[in-house]
Design a protein around this nucleic acid. Sequence first.
DNA 1: AGCACGCCGACT
DNA 2: GTCGGCGTGCTC
Length: 730
Amino acid sequence: MTDLILHIALPVPLLRHFDYLAPLDVTAVNVGARVRVPFGARRMIGFVVGSARSTQIAPDKIKRAIEVLDAQSIFPTELWDTLLFAARYYHHSLGEVLASALPGNLREGKTLDQKGLLMFSKRANDSQIAAVRGAKQKALLALLANEDLSETDLNLAMPAWRTSMKLLEGKGLVQRFQVSHYQPPMAKLDGPLLNAEQAIAVQAINEARGFKPFLLDGITGSGKTEVYLRAALDVLARGLAVLVLVPEIGLTPQTLRRFRERLACAQAVMHSQLSDGERSYAWTQAKTGAIRLVLGTRSAVFAPLKDLGLIILDEEHDGSYKQQDSFRYHARDLALKRAASLKIPIVLGSATPSLEMLKAVSEGRMQSVTLTQRAASQQIPAQSLVDLRNQDLQEGLAPRSLVAIRESLMAGAQVLILRNRRGFAAKLECHSCGHVAQCPRCDRPLTLHRQAGRLRCHYCDLNQGLRDECSSCKSTELFALGVGTQRVEELMQKLFPEWPCIRIDRDSVSQKGSLEDKLDTLQLGQPCIVIGTQMMAKGHDLPELGLVIVMGADDGLHSEDFRASERLAQLLIQVAGRAGRSKRTGVVLIQTHQPENPLLQHIAYDSYANIAQRLLAERVATEFPPYHFAAMLRADAVSLLALNTFLNNAKAKLLQALVKLELTGSINVYGPIPSGLAKRAGRYRAQLILIAPQRASLHTAVGPWISDLRAEKSPGNVHFSLDIDPYDFQ
DNA sequence: AGCACGCCGACT
DNA sequence: GTCGGCGTGCTC
């Protein structure tokens, strides 16, 4: 009797599996089961991807697996198929892909049995409650007054509740316990009447059977969520489960609240801020079918819901669906793949759909349903461009903007100053005519290297000194674009000391619950100034917002990133939607040095549909996605020389391979291009960009190429990764 | 990715 | 004399 050989995928960045002898007592294993194995000097959890009776591995090298952890595959078949596809498509290690689809507990080999969810129960009488001093502790006791609550409920009800809960437990006023099957208390309210467009959308989705992708193209305030709720209701009534994806953690509590109010079924959230216990609980309960609706961010696309009948993905255009490190998957694309694998409908919603999905609609691969009407009380905000040329700016703000801010505050409205995302490489712009220094050969903006005092082209070797005057209008007032909005907060405090100024960006809201706290403050409606980045444009309701000032719009017009103008259009239209939800008529002022720029003109005065058509035509002409297909080899190293040597070598290898594969000319290779962002953690970064008219030829060439690069030891300790369908071209 | 093995500088 | 720096090589 020969030993059973197991093919195991391990969570290491190696594009192959490893063979092991099955444990002595094991005669059969299922594909997809987890296995504990020795690997070098450590132990790891891997996944069975196959088995055999013989192996090429020498008998003295092969090791025996320690134990098989699951009798069955830990993944539902349909999810397994999607994960296999993803590993192939993104040229990523299967073991890492499979591990990334599991909650940490299960990834580390914990057993699948349900140990239950942590619940909290009040054990205090009225006199004890009266003696409690802390405001947060009092609030917690009030929440627990009539019902026991789970961690999930508490996260929803009160940010940063854990410290106060610990104190209450210490006094014996609260007790914790575990339950295995928790049914949260659920109300079921009737929804509002649908308008005609919503009714058509709901009917189309509810009648769909089999794989059927919908693009729900609805302007802000047109009631997309109501359509999601009705579609979910129908699917749940048929005994099937629903997966809802949103781009940001910040959007989960308010969205979950709406789903909880309306749908009577067990629901759970899945996002990166869950504790290990919460995460594996939600995962396991979804798998057994106890939880019927999962609401989550990017990684929830792997939620193993039993009898999944509908996927809803909100704000489809949002870049946060693309993972930006290690396993660089796009949750929207994998959601589509999963829906296809399950043969179920999927609804992608947005007020500003991505060009990829608009192209799919035009080719008949996706059905478009549109919502064009707003709820009656909401008005479309007035947008206009503020000409910055030759203006006397204060920290980048024009006199007209400052006047508008004062007027708005005096009228009792809130003001949002939106800074475009940072991280664009600096450019040299003329304050007099708005002209940005260009490379004469490549027709692309030159990058300003301030320390060196040089202007460089990232697409050719042009490297010139700074000019004293604008090449277009001879003005000598030149300044760096892409810098200089940091001190807006100080200026606001100086000019408008009687009104509070709130800064909302990654740094200021990194603590748990801090964003919600700030948003709650804003919803109270007191006039104030908010300085925020693009996260402010996402979904939050600000009823007293009367004025939005957009700074740094020009950065989006002069970027190496071909997607910058699409993103700028989406950002500005989304933020205008925030102001448009206001009870007052909103005003949006877009500051620019190029008021004649056609894109800005269209953003300010035209519809997104028309902008998108123009951008699509541009992408055809420039041979960029979605009409061509892209991949990117990103690399970083301590030494600039090692970095460029590696990328040049990689480029040469690819070009050689194309000759061998008779694919010469079918892939354009650009680079090495230095990353638009400053070097990070002391390492220089650069990349090669691959653009091909056919997806197939790109994948044929890239597969062997990346394996080759991995096999070859890179001198100078160069790190690299492959990004298929990159979102960010910086 | 880890982790071990291996060959050169400032510490008890 | 040896603790430890991280270069490079391997993992069934």
